[in-house]
Design a protein around this nucleic acid. Sequence first.
RNA 1: GCGUCCAUAGCUCAGCUGGAUAGAGUACCGGACUUCGAAUCCGUAGGUCGCAGGUUCGAAUCCUGCUGGGCGCGCCA
Length: 632
Amino acid sequence: MNEQQFIQNALQKSIEQELIARRLELGETRPGQLGEQLCPEKPPKAELGDWACPCFPLAKIFREAPPKLAVALAERLRTELPGWEIEPIGAYLNFRLPRDVVARSVMEQIALEQADFGRNEELKGRKVMIEFSSPNTNKPLHLGHLRNNVLGESISRIVAAGGAELNKVNIINDRGVHICKSMLAYQHFGRKEGPEGPFWETPESRGCKGDRLVGDYYVRFNDWVKEGGKSEEAENPEQLALKMLKEWEDGRPEVRELWQKMRKWVLDGIAQTYIRCGISFDRLYFESETYKLGQELVAEGLERGIFQRREDGAIFIDLSDCKLDQKVVQRSDGTSVYITQDLGTAVARHRDFPFDCQIYVVGNEQDYHFKVLFRILHLFGYPWSEQLQHLSYGMVVLPEGKMKSREGTVVDADDLLDRLEELALDGLRERGRLQEGQDSKENGAENSENSEVGLNTARSIALGALHFYLLQFNPRREISFDPKESLAFTGNTGSYLQYVGARIYSILRKAGAEVEANADRLAKYDPETWSLLAGGASDHAESSANSPEWELLKQLREYPKAVSLAAAELNPSHVVKALAEVARRFSRFYHDVPILSSEEPLLSVRLDLCRATLQVLRNGMELCVIPFLESM
RNA sequence: GCGUCCAUAGCUCAGCUGGAUAGAGUACCGGACUUCGAAUCCGUAGGUCGCAGGUUCGAAUCCUGCUGGGCGCGCCA
């Protein structure tokens, strides 16, 4: 039973007693409903208490003003909840927890569970498949993918923390006219003149990542179209692309060979970006493999009357009855469209991993696509089709508007990460943080700025800043990305979490103390020590009502709730926010309360509070794909 | 035009599904490093919750209308 229910139960009893004392009848209301109507909530200000409950709903039954009721109920609750402070203020009943008990229970729980603190079993036994990233093999990843990637990875970790069995998958869109476009451009413009004669350009010859190279040819194709597209075939490039797609589906060797080569360039390049971002997949699906199954399904659907054939041969589904209009599922020339492969992919995936639920992390510009997809799978009668979910996240827009690949306003993922790493390195340099034992001795040479350790730290800071930034908003919300302001390391950022972690590490190092919390040690403290900790025993504890220690402890207790809420809503921002709040409250505690210079037993128990905070930060940062740093 | 999502401090966003004086960060201004890491902390200021109605003890939150925006409405993906 959680605390909220605990309070509700006590309320329920008190209300019943009060009713009896007043000889009032319940009338239509079930006895059990009374407590449920009163929902304990967080007061707007910490001074008011730890929990609060408005008495408005009871006014009718008791035929008395809520403030008077609150006073009467408070009296009864005091005997119901010994140790708690209960205070009626206006129409509200305010509750204050017995602090020594709470402090001890949170810290013991953290010490016992350690890396598992925050995990729960709400999704135990559920098999969840999650699709995210979904790159095209004709260009590198951009800012939009970065949001998608970190959302997918973070939600995966959060859902796994809920006990679900998880399968992370990526559908690689390596088939279609857009792929043919970059291939065509390469065929026409990829022949270069070198000192030793002509050659076909490769990532090595240009000295860049393969995804970048192919992406440039994709852009080149669009320029070609604008130029009027002169080619020896005297057809325009768009037509050539469709023709090439047909040849690809027919398996023409030259086309397949070029496709294999360019596809690998992009896949290798994108794989590097994934590694850099700390995200991974259990399995890759390729549209080039699943589209055939999609075509089989189209044939089956046609036979079963789910789809219809038009005079020109195109196959479509009529969904005008549910306002989804008509949708073509196979072109008149027999080639597949986007949704064809998604049908095949869904079926293939359920064969590979019989999921209870599948989450598609895909941008909201595809809301219509997924409505149609889910509808079709429903009409096919797959039972699992009822458990498909589209996590429709908002776009990332720049101050000047939407990113457009053709206009070169796309923010390239690798470029952005490079820029962030440079800024992080500048930050380390300014703070003189590139020396001080950050270098390995075997490196011997010098504490140079280019040391491996310094670069790794900068990478972690950059990634932390980016991921914190991208996860702090509601996923469904469109976010505007201003490079100048968004790439900050001060204020509410990933670096803030890392900084607090590093400071805790530092203080534990200085104390010569171990880093892990230890439940046996905690068991030795007496109740008075716990009261000293929670109540704020610092010299200037003029208001022990809400000491920094108590505020911190309460926030540590909030962390598991944030994780389960994030899992329920598929919204990692709850975890990010809970962590930022932990960091803020720790900073205040750290600032206001001396730790190393305090005397026993306060020294020990305060160090234990540091350890508990550290553990929560680490656990949460792991879920948000924000690297933890022992020093920065 | 149709569908769909959105509108809260100068800016970027919260607001726990109807409750107390609407909160953070950032920017601005003012304080705090001889003391555990100043990528920090503290304080001041900043709002007619787009507009107008409605529902009720009570609305940023629910309903209707209006205004202004995003996205979608391809045999692109």
